[in-house]
Design a protein around this nucleic acid. Structure first.
Lengths: 197, 197
DNA sequence: CCTACCGATCGGTAGG
DNA sequence: CCTACCGATCGGTAGG
C-alpha cells in the first residue's frame, strides 16, 4: 500500500524547522533541547521525529542551504559583466539582504556550524574557505585593475563579512532598523574604505 | 587554625580558567562539559570545584573582566585631549589589540555572554549598550566637528565592532596573521570609510 | 501524534 | 585531589 502523505506535511515540517531555527539563534544549538522545540510548536518531543530525522540534521539543512545560496550568487557575480568594484558592491548588498531577510538561518550558518559532525563540518568549512577565496580574488582583480585601493585582500574579505555579520545583533533587538538606511550606511563605509581615490 | 593556602593555588586556578576559556571558545559554553575541562588539565571533574565555584561563575568572570577592560579604556579615551577622529582610531586599535592579545576571552565575552543567568545577563547587556552609546556619541561629536563624514553613528559603531570581532576566525586558524598588517589594513579600511574628504 | 521509557551524560555534592 | 554517587535532563526509540 502506498504511504499516505498528509497534505500539511510540508507546512508542519517547516513549522518545526522554523521553531528550531528561532531557538538555535536565541539560545544556541547546544543549549536548545528537542523538548524546547516541541514546546514552541505545542507537541511532545518524540512527535518531532515524524517531521525531521534528528537535531543534527536540522542544523545541517540550515547551514548547507545558506551556503548554497551564497555559492550560487557568487557564480552569478563572477559571470556577469560588471567592473570589479560593482561586483564587490553586489556581493556586499547580497550579504546584507540575506542577513535582513533570512537572518535566523544566516546567523546559524555563521555561528553554529561548528556543531556539525564530520564529514559535514569539513565540507562546510571547505565551502566557506572557497567562497572567501573567490571573494578575495575579485578584490585582487579590482586592485590590479586600479578600481580598488591596495589593501590585503584576505583581510578586507574578513572585515567586510564580519561587519555584515554583525547585523544580527540589530535584527535580534526589538526595534527593527530601517533596512535602506542600514544598507546604504554599511555599503558607504565599506566601499569608501576600499575605493581608489 | 588558619587555612593553609598552597603556594600554587593561584596558578592552578588560572590553569583551570585558561582551559575553560580555550574550550568555551572552541566548542562553545553549552557544549563544554566540566569533564572536558578536567581532562584538559589532567584531573577528575569534581576536583575542579576546589578552584572555581561553578561552570557559570567561570563564564561570568571572563565576560565581566573583558567588559571592565573596555569600559576603563573608554573612560581614558573620553578624557584625553585628542580630536575625535583620533579618539575613534584609538578605540579601533585597542579593540584589535585586545582581540589579538586576549582573543579567547574577548571572543567568549562577545559570543557566549547570552548564557549568563540573571541578573548578570542584564547587567552585561547594559554595560555593552552603554559602551556602544559612548562610542556612538564620540562619532557624532566627530561628525558635528566636521572630522567624520555624515554616517549614522549607531550603524557605524555596529560595523566597526563587528568587523573587528571577526578577527577571531583568523586567530582561531593555525596560521598566525601578521598583527601589524592586520591592524593597519583594518584601521585603513574603516577609517577611510569614516573620514571626511 | 501520544505515552512510556532507554542509556548516556550533565553539573555538582558528600566524604575523606 | 579522589571515589562514589545524586537528581535532572539529554537525544532518541518502541509501540501503538
Amino acid at each position: 500500500m502506498a504511504k499516505i502523505i498528509p497534505i500539511n506535511n510540508g507546512t508542519k515540517k517547516e513549522a518545526v524547522l522554523q521553531a528550531a531555527a528561532s531557538l538555535f539563534m536565541k539560545k544556541g544549538y547546544a543549549a536548545t533541547s528537542m523538548r524546547d522545540i516541541a514546546v514552541a510548536i505545542g507537541i511532545e518531543a518524540p512527535s518531532l521525529y515524524n517531521h525531521i530525522h534528528s537535531k543534527k540534521s536540522m542544523l545541517h539543512d540550515i547551514c548547507f542551504s545558506v551556503a548554497q545560496s551564497f555559492n550560487e550568487h557568487m557564480l552569478e557575480v563572477q559571470g556577469n559583466a560588471e567592473n570589479f568594484l560593482k561586483k564587490i558592491e553586489n556581493l556586499i548588498r547580497f550579504h546584507i539582504d540575506m542577513m535582513v531577510k533570512d537572518f535566523q538561518n544566516v546567523y546559524i550558518a555563521d555561528n553554529e556550524w561548528r556543531h556539525l559532525d564530520e564529514p559535514y563540518n569539513s565540507d562546510f568549512k571547505n565551502q566557506r574557505r572557497n567562497y572567501r577565496s573567490c571573494f578575495a580574488a575579485l578584490l585582487r582583480d579590482g586592485i590590479n585593475n586600479n578600481e580598488i585601493s591596495d589593501v590585503d585582500a584576505d583581510i578586507a574579505v574578513l572585515t567586510i563579512l564580519s561587519a555584515i555579520g554583525g547585523i544580527e545583533s540589530w535584527q535580534r533587538s526589538a526595534k527593527k532598523m530601517d533596512v535602506q538606511l542600514l544598507e546604504e550606511n554599511i555599503v558607504n563605509i565599506l566601499l569608501k574604505g576600499l575605493k581608489k581615490h
